[in-house]
Design a binder for these strands. Sequence first.
DNA 1: TCGCGCATGTAATCCGTTACATGATTCC
DNA 2: GGAATCATGTAACGGATTACATGCGCGA
Lengths: 175, 175
Amino acid sequence: MSLKLAVLGLLDVEPGSGYALLQRFRTSLGFFWQTTHQQLYKELHGLHEEGLVDCETVSQETRPDKKVYSLNARGAAELDALLTKAATPTKIRDPLLVKIFCGRRLGSDALRAEVESHRRKHEQTLALYRMLHEQIGKRPAAVRQRYHHPELTLRLGIRFEEAWLAWCEEIGAEL
Amino acid sequence: MSLKLAVLGLLDVEPGSGYALLQRFRTSLGFFWQTTHQQLYKELHGLHEEGLVDCETVSQETRPDKKVYSLNARGAAELDALLTKAATPTKIRDPLLVKIFCGRRLGSDALRAEVESHRRKHEQTLALYRMLHEQIGKRPAAVRQRYHHPELTLRLGIRFEEAWLAWCEEIGAEL
DNA sequence: TCGCGCATGTAATCCGTTACATGATTCC
DNA sequence: GGAATCATGTAACGGATTACATGCGCGA
């Protein structure tokens, strides 16, 4: 259900083609949710069939035709309905935890190496998030206002990556 | 793939029926991964068909018959193979983030209420994890040694819940 | 000429969730 | 009498992943 919400939410901000939506997704919601172009296109077909979005085919000269989707009144109502339904917290669901949990059989060296590799990835992600966060901070207040909600999610992302990093360092030293 | 790893890992520690495995799962790996009895039973059937686990039907007098599964040599080899393959980090994937991201339409009051409700749940989860962690700390060193890997995962759980809590408090105050 | 970006899709498979189903025993 | 525990499953559906597929234009 969250992908549906995500797509409606993106269209609420601005109409766009599947391709364009995917670009926006990757650099925003995509940090915390994931999808592929296949799934996105399917979702858009579904939303169109349900009558929640309008679709207009736009011919382009030097580029392939594109289908520009936009939120209509029914879609906006559906978005509001989805936003009203309470979300339940989910589990971490990171395969690394399952591995470590079952890691008795694996030697300390192998575990340490894997933890170190994760540490590096989380370090990179943290750097990226911090950079994005700084960039938002530099914008004029009016623009910042528009990015307020995304910025809130980014802050959780930062806290999580910090938690990952600290944990990787702690247990890497211990293994 | 992680459920397969989880089941093999649980059987590596001790054989058991699907029902027994589910109990153990719920109070250990289940904090970070989730499953249902349906999925577990299906996985066990699959593993048995693949020849990775042995299965013995045990009749009981006052209880229904049960099937006790145990890891065999091929299963142990498969477990080692899975443990060797690198795990890639995953996204947070919590629906609350998608909601907040798209939350412009929802009023501050509704958002604040939802964040507060999540805060309470994470508070409870944190309390539970801390209690479990303390209990492990009280055990004699020999026992603690056996729970070392699970304990490492629990520590990440604690850090995550702390991050959630701090974030909920921060943005709750701001909304 | 090779690869990248634009733009869209089908198909197969797997994983996860929800609903439905049974039936004995034990405890309140 | 009713609920919880033990113990196992089938079926339907939906969401996610992976592979396969097409075709033009542009820059190195």
